[in-house]
Amino acid sequence: MSQADITIQGHASAGAMAEPAFSVPAKKMAMWLFIIADSATFAGCLVAYGFIRNGTPNWPRPFHSITNVAVMTLILLTSSLTMLVGVRAAQAGDKPKAFRWVMITAVAGLLFAVLHLKEWMGMISEGATLFHNPWGTPLFSSLFFSITGLHLLHVTGGVIALVAVGVRYQGGRYKADDLEVTGLYWHFVDLVWMFVVPLVYLLNLAH
């Protein structure tokens, strides 16, 4: 076997090794791994919440209205759709349309964050803080602000990422694939909210 044959075979095996896992590009795979890890973070928080709620007698149920949280849910779900429109436009090569829809998604995320802060301010004005709760056990407020705060942090990070990636895509530095990866993160933020709403808000609705 000549040196050339060895080199060719070496390159062939290197090519086989370079085959991406599940035929998913590296950036997308990295985002999926992050999503799996972050799912564990949120699952841990929600299970801890369930553990404490179950083990605490006379758990407070302070929410009288679900209007705000319903609007927030509508906005976040709609933002997932606008993100899909943006990604599809990018994949079709329509850069202005993709940029426009990604920015609409970012604005929806910002609106969600503003409504979330409004919700928080309402609770704080009633005396609820991270360490104090006027309706009974302080654990309620601690868990409420921790879990919704962690989600709000993800939304804020998502808005920043959408603007940063959107602008760079518009400027030609990023491709449609980068928008798709950011979209994955945004859908994940939406997905987490589907669990936060029933467990943290709706189960604590005053009847």
């Binding site: 553990f51 179950n54 083990g55 007698p57």
Partner: peptide, 9 residues
């Protein structure tokens, strides 16, 4: 840890 949560109640 759920068994411990039920133990609390």
């Amino acid at each position: 840890g759920w068994t411990d949560s039920f133990r609390l109640t």
